[in-house]
């Protein structure tokens, strides 16, 4: 298994895709740090969760000087000037709360590890080399998880130090706190990795995988919100959805929330890996 993982690391750093993924990650970090506010995708309620963080600063007071339309019309540099009036808050913690952005980077990891093999049929070379399907599946699973964790921690520390350099300590928290949050976010990140790896082994072709994986997180949230509204589900239950879970875990979660969240992550991991394995186990390799 180690040999397969080593070979994948050798291969992916000789292609451009991994550097595009790193570029996307750096761009997201750069925009957030320049705006002094995390940029995030999807559901606005992530911001609601993170608002706790602003209570310790004059954020609301600064923002009350502008209308929402004025703020929206501002250029990035003007917005930065407004944010610099804020006495400070833990921007790095807030950025970690929007780590769902990394989902799009994780897509690269799953595609590079799994679907590229199927689309190019190079998996045939591997499976005919005395490497069992089980060993192949486990190796790819470990590789995608490793890549996701590398991206997660790289994102944390690049963002942390870039924030200190460009925005000073005023907008930064302690490195141990940032590390703790990142570690707490590992289970949902591994759940995201499982979702993507499972889908990759089910779809097998890069184009199909991208068609499913790219809109998935947004479509899923949309459906969840509709279902929740229709069934009058309490909002706190929605916080166990992976995007909101990442945000919640960055904002002093309660112990009971963490236990429930990690159990859900475990369930997602088991579900998607089982589905991926069952689909791949006896699949005809073309």
């Amino acid at each position: 298994m180690i040999n397969i993982i080593r070979s994948d690391f050798y291969r992916i750093f000789r292609g451009i895709a991994v550097y595009i993924a790193i570029g996307i990650m750096l761009l997201a970090i750069g925009v957030s740090i320049y705006m002094i506010q995390p940029g995030y995708i999807g559901n606005a309620s992530v911001g609601d969760i993170n608002n706790e963080n602003f209570k310790t600063s004059n954020y609301d007071e600064v923002m009350s000087e502008y209308t929402l339309d004025e703020l929206r019309a501002m250029s990035l540099s003007d917005y930065r000037q407004v944010m610099l009036k804020v006495t400070g808050y833990e921007l790095d913690r807030d950025i970690l709360g929007t780590n769902i952005n990394l989902y799009y980077v994780f897509i690269f990891a799953a595609a590079l590890a799994v679907t590229v093999d199927f689309s190019g049929s190079s998996i045939k070379n591997t499976l005919t080399s005395a490497i069992s399907r089980r060993k192949y599946f486990l190796s790819k699973l470990i590789f995608v998880n490793l890549m996701c964790l590398i991206f997660l921690f790289a994102n944390t520390y690049i963002m942390y130090f870039a924030n200190i350099i460009f925005n000073t300590k005023q907008f930064s928290s302690d490195i141990s706190e940032i590390t703790k949050i990142t570690v707490m976010q590992i289970p949902p990140v591994l759940a995201l990795a499982a979702v993507l790896t499972g889908i990759a082994f089910i779809t097998r072709k890069t184009a199909v995988f991208n068609t499913v994986a790219i809109p998935l997180i947004m479509v899923f949230q949309l459906i969840l919100n509709i279902v929740a509204a229709a069934l009058s589900v309490q909002e706190e239950y929605l916080h166990y959805e992976l995007q909101l879970m990442l945000a919640k875990l960055a904002n002093n979660p309660t112990e009971s929330y963490m236990i429930n969240a990690y159990l859900i992550c475990g369930g997602i991991i088991v579900l998607f890996y089982t589905a991926g394995w069952l689909s791949f186990r006896k699949a005809e390799i073309k």
Binding site: N3, R6, R14, S122, K124, N125, T126
Partner: peptide, 23 residues
Amino acid sequence: IENPAFFGNLTAYQNLRYYCYQK
């Protein structure tokens, strides 16, 4: 088996090196 399938972005040497790692 069937068509030769290797990674398009790698050279002949790199492709074989990849499988050396694997094997």
